[in-house]
Nucleic acid binder design. Structure first.
Lengths: 334, 334
DNA sequence: CATGTCAATGTAAGCGCTTACATTTTTTGC
DNA sequence: GCAAAAAATGTAAGCGCTTACATTGACATG
């Protein structure tokens, strides 16, 4: 069943059917009704590829996430999909994994699918200083279609970033803990991503601003050496540390677990702050105080930028950042 | 840059370029090399829509999940995407929400996108008995393209289901608890989905087989009445219940929380079993014993069925079921 | 009543590919 | 060295749309 069939059934030309389909004005009410009736009756839907061939787009965008099982990323995808659907775009999902090679492969795969734009969730690893090498595949994709990054920064033409101001958020978290009398605050992270670095930066600034020296041994990377960190948390006599800021809620849950194992009271003897304010934060015991990284805001704004970029000629900001918000629960004092 | 450009740059006809592109045998090595060189140099990728127009497919499948933020579903999508990508199919994701209307809308949306098949994750609600009405939109989609269901059952032509034998898994969990001397086992669920009903069935069968009467007041639906359930768990004097089987890990985490609040010892006084063996199960304290619902197996098999259905004429089973496996951790005795 | 306007509709040329069929070139057997 | 077979390549007809441009016919104007 194609446009010719519909045309002959309705006794009009294909051009008229096409006009009805596309809501063009130049059709009399009478014919429009007749054609619509046939379309309805036959349950006709136009062939998307034919339309795409003519127009160069089928209104799809590629979304790349390293790991869709990650709570933060699935939250992002959830919001992105909802917003894009509203605008008539479909989402082609690619789970890239974390290494550069496979990310680049996912980008290429989506480019081949002729998506109108690319959304990358989660920042690139910038920790090793080879930032420019890490992101060259992004820049090269951006030569063809606009690229939008949620929670990461890559600069370049046709690349648009939306980030949560993690540095500021952690800075404020540190300040809060210090106002509670904490002096020995640990920082725990498991990645060298752009946002993790920002968080670390906020941590350091927070300490320094309050005259507390930064000690490298209070910065923990369980990803690298899970056992060392475990031993540290289980065996270091208090109050060698009296608070922990984690860059992921699940790290905070881990910290809670070790503290419980030692009989440390939370939040009296130890305050713990997680990150992302995920569902984990409210389903564990005690409920986690956590920094809300504004997923909803970041993602709706990303789609706003995307639509503006694709469908208007209005200028689109290269970057937007939003402030994190501390959701206070049971692992910090009030 | 299109196939004509490549053809003239390489000094051949477009048919030859097309043959090179599609790996057809009838091209001499010499010309193939020459054409490939030009393709490479110009970074040419064929227009997918043109190809799709001719062949009627661009090798995409629609995946519908009620909520991608749900751990179970994102796990499914992760596996599905990985497997489909291997086979050269891309995934168009739709987050449908839970109600029938919007599920039907998502189905229609993906049908319009001309996907080759549909994968529905999570069962339909069959709890109200109106199963046939609930699933008619699935059957009508199945008239056009094959539909694959992960963890749910809808029967009909061109519909293929992969499920975890939840009934059996819960039956075995109940048996285990009874072998530990438990008699007052609660069952907690938050949905009326097909799989929840199966779990409930397994629960009842387990009790009956061991001569324990089924008591309706031991079957809890926090979704319906969260406060009533909360009160029950917080105030009912033990040993009115001595074990809980939950149809979701997060329900189990909630149960742990209430038990801790009362100072109930786990697993000595109360054993708790969760479901899905999610990352939640290992990140909480104590770690949850949980029923593994075989997501990996279900999803890889779904893709296996799908590929066989789309690319061969071999018959494909209408349904496959796999057994759940109990992952024993700290919330049950050993 | 001839003519110009304008709204409604139709005609046909792409969009960039694949592929059946036609044509040319190479190989093979004698 | 030639005919026939085989291999390589080319030509052109779609695939199902959109849309610029052409045509038609109704109506108003002088």
């Amino acid at each position: 069943m194609n446009i010719y069939d519909i045309a002959s059934l309705a006794g009009v030309s294909i051009a008229t059917v096409s006009r009805v389909l596309n809501g063009s004005e130049k059709v009399s009410e009478k014919t429009r009704a007749r054609v619509m009736a046939v379309i309805e009756r036959e349950q006709y839907t136009p062939n998307l590829f034919a339309r795409g061939l003519d127009q160069g787009t089928i209104h799809s965008v590629g979304i790349i996430v390293p790991d869709i099982s990650d709570l933060y990323m699935s939250d992002c995808v959830s919001v992105l999909e909802k917003e894009l659907e509203k605008e008539g775009y479909s989402c082609i999902l690619a789970c890239s994994g974390y290494d550069k090679k496979s990310k680049a492969a996912s980008v290429q795969m989506l480019l081949d699918k002729m998506v109108d734009a690319l959304i990358l969730v989660g920042s690139t690893y910038a920790g090793d200083g080879s930032d420019s090498e890490e992101t060259d595949y992004i820049r090269s994709a951006a030569e063809k279609i606009p690229v939008f990054i949620v929670n990461g920064i890559v600069d370049g033409r046709n690349i648009y970033c939306n980030i949560c101001n993690d540095r500021q958020a952690v800075y404020e978290a540190v300040s809060l803990l210090i106002s509670h009398g904490r002096r020995n605050i640990l920082f725990m992270t498991n990645s060298g991503s752009y946002s993790s670095l920002q968080k670390l930066q906020g941590y350091k600034e927070g300490l320094i601003r309050h005259g507390i020296p930064v000690s490298e041994e209070r910065i923990l990377f369980p990803g690298d050496r899970i056992h060392a960190v475990r031993d540290y948390l289980l065996n270091t006599p208090l109050p060698a540390f009296d608070a922990v800021i984690c860059t992921e809620d699940f790290l905070a849950v881990g910290a809670v677990k070790y503290a419980h194992a030692r009989g440390i009271r939370i939040p009296e003897d130890l305050e713990i702050i997680g990150y992302n304010n995920s569902s984990l934060a409210i389903s564990c015991e005690p409920e986690l105080t956590s920094i809300d990284s504004r997923v909803e805001k970041l993602c709706t704004n990303t789609v706003k930028f995307l639509i503006r970029r694709l469908e208007t000629t209005d200028p689109v900001p290269q970057a937007a950042d939003f402030s994190g918000i501390l959701a206070v629960r049971q692992t910090t004092r009030t």
